[in-house]
Each structure stands twice: as structure tokens, then as C-alpha cells.
């Protein structure tokens, strides 16, 4: 049996690709399963999906615990979700990232890491969706299902797409398939991973806010984060009242900065600020304190 686990964020199409993969295998005479697992799915929230295929009927109906392959559609999930959990010996983690495979491998020690720059390949093919490239790539590394089966399954699943859009996605699938073949030829360390211990559930347990881990929703941001020119802040606290994620930090009722672990980057604070003290800046921009721009980093309209 082949078992694949998909990690993505709501809206990135992990669920759809898990289904197309199963559909392709089905076309090659396999018995298949594909299903997602998520809580309250929100655009940007971590989502997991699974694909199974076997030559015989599949009798199990639970989440994939020991995958042969893990596909990570969004590299920001690496620090947030245990993507390597339960990976089978000989299995691999395929990451969509512009980062080099060796630097990714440092972040995922002990497992075979393959990378494909799915976003770039999708753009080259004329599309926007890295998930399609990664679908091609995972099949490429596994050696099945065949590219043609994937393309047929894709066209059947997305029957409403225009012929032009289908052509773009066929190209993206093929680009991923070929890129993965090259990538897979590179020697890498084999995986030795212990199966995860099942979580101990406590029926009826009281969960206290101060004890419960707060999911780090900062990973929902898409490349931009808020920053402040503190000298322009008049401390009206309108950003504070309108922040859905309680990510505006105050001390003694005064604005002091941002909680980037929870800020989802919605920009409501930017809109609420009457003095334009808050602006969105690239994620990597160096800030001081809890999100202050320095005179050096004050680019753009404040320069």
C-alpha cells in the first residue's frame, strides 16, 4: 500500500491534490482513498490531507500515520506542524520551496528531503498553483501513477476549467514530474523515523486558557507583516480594538508593538490607524523592539 500525507494551508489545494492523486491511481486499477483532516478550516490555517492506494481493497479508515511520502505545499509549515512524524523508513518529505534541499534538510534532520520550487515552476507554466506542480513531483519520485493518468484525473476532477486553464495545469504537472525525477536522483540520507505515539486524549478534561498551547497563527501571513513608526503613534488604541487576533501588544494601556506569533496579517490595524503610523513591510525586514521601523528601515513613502 502507498500512503501519502499532504500538508498545506486552507486554500492551497492540498485536499484537491490528494483527490486527483487517488483518481489517477484509480484509473490505473488501484483501490484508493483520499480525504482531508481539518478542524475549522480557514483560509490560511494548516490543513492535512491523505491519499492511499493499494492493489487490494483498503480496509483501514483512519488518518495516515506512517506515510511513504509527505508533501509540504507551504514551507512556512515546517516550523509549525510536525511534517516528518511517522515517516516510514525509505520515505521522503517533498517540500515546495525556493530554498536549497541541503538547507531544508538541516531543518528536517534524519529524513530524506526533496525540494521542488513549485511556485516558480507554476509561474513558468503560466499558472499560479504550486499544488499541481507538487502533485506531478510526488508521482515522479514514487514512479507512479503515470503522468498521463494524472493529467486525465486532473481534467476529470476540474471538468469546469477552460481548455486553456487545463493546458496550463498539464504543463505544471509535467514540470513537477520532471523536476522531481532529477531531484530524486540526488543521493540523500535514508529516513529512520519512529512511529508517533498516539495522543493521550483526556475525555472530559478541563482545558484552561493559560495551560492550553496557543496555536501560532503567525504562519498565516503571506509575506507581509505590520510595522510601526512609534514616533507617529498617538496611542489611540484603535488598532488594538479592531485586531481580530489580539496581536496588538499593550503595556499600561499603551501600544508597544505586535505579537507576530499570532498576527495573521489582515491589515485591519493599518486601516484603523488614523496617523498612518502602521504599514505593512516584507516579512524579512529587520525591525527593533516589537515591530518598530528604524530610520534605516523606513523605506517607501516614509523615506
Amino acid at each position: 500500500m502507498r500512503e501519502i500525507r499532504w500538508h498545506g494551508r486552507g486554500g492551497q489545494g492540498a485536499k484537491s491534490m490528494s483527490q486527483v492523486l487517488a483518481e489517477a491511481w484509480l484509473r490505473q486499477g488501484r483501490w484508493v482513498q483520499a480525504f482531508p483532516e481539518y478542524g475549522p478550516e480557514r483560509s490560511g490555517a494548516p490543513v492535512t490531507a491523505y491519499t492511499r492506494a493499494d492493489a487490494r481493497p483498503i480496509r483501514i479508515h483512519h488518518a495516515v500515520r506512517n506515510p511513504d511520502a509527505v508533501v509540504v505545499l507551504d514551507p512556512s509549515l515546517l516550523g509549525e506542524v510536525p511534517v516528518t512524524a511517522g515517516l516510514r523508513p525509505g520515505g521522503f518529505v517533498l517540500v515546495n520551496s525556493p530554498e536549497s534541499a541541503s538547507s531544508l534538510a538541516e531543518r528536517l534532520p534524519g529524513v530524506r528531503v526533496l525540494r521542488v520550487d513549485g511556485s516558480a515552476l507554476a509561474r513558468t507554466a503560466g499558472g499560479n498553483y504550486a499544488n499541481v506542480v507538487l502533485l506531478g513531483a510526488v508521482a515522479g519520485v514514487l514512479g507512479e501513477p503515470a503522468l498521463e493518468a494524472l493529467q486525465q484525473a486532473f481534467a476529470a476532477t476540474f471538468a469546469k476549467l477552460s481548455p486553456e486553464a487545463v493546458a496550463v495545469n498539464f504543463k505544471a504537472l509535467e514540470a513537477g514530474y520532471r523536476a522531481a525525477l532529477e531531484e530524486a536522483e540526488r543521493p540523500g540520507p535514508g529516513a529512520v523515523q519512529a512511529a508517533p505515539t498516539p495522543r493521550e486524549d483526556l475525555p472530559g478534561a478541563v482545558v484552561l486558557a493559560q495551560d492550553a498551547p496557543h496555536p501560532r497563527t503567525g504562519g498565516w501571513r503571506t509575506g507581509l507583516k505590520p510595522a510601526v513608526r512609534l514616533e507617529a503613534c498617538v496611542n489611540c488604541l484603535l488598532c488594538w480594538v479592531y485586531c481580530p487576533d489580539a496581536a496588538i501588544l499593550t503595556e499600561n494601556q499603551a501600544f508597544v508593538g505586535f505579537d507576530y506569533q499570532h498576527c495573521k496579517g489582515c491589515e485591519l490595524c493599518v486601516k484603523a490607524c488614523p496617523t498612518a503610523a502602521i504599514e505593512m513591510v516584507p516579512e524579512g525586514l529587520e525591525l527593533v523592539g516589537q515591530g518598530q521601523l528604524t530610520p534605516r528601515t523606513q523605506g517607501g513613502r516614509h523615506a
Binding site: 496557543h214 497563527t217 489611540c236 488604541l237 499593550t250 499570532h262 495573521k264 489582515c266
Partner: peptide, 29 residues
């Protein structure tokens, strides 16, 4: 005033971030 609300939130945290409501959701407000 907003200062009072911020003071209340600082001393008695009744609702935090880390939830999975959408980006820009109105409900937490």
C-alpha cells in the same frame, strides 16, 4: 474608554489570539 478596555484586558485576559478565525474576522471584535 479604550484605555479602560485595554486595562481590563491586561489584568483579566478574557479572549486571546491563536484562534483560527479568518484573517480580518469581525467576530473577535
Amino acid at each position: 474608554s479604550l484605555k479602560t478596555l485595554a486595562h481590563n484586558a491586561e489584568t483579566d485576559v478574557r479572549f486571546t489570539g491563536g484562534h483560527s478565525l479568518c484573517r480580518g474576522c469581525g467576530a473577535p471584535t
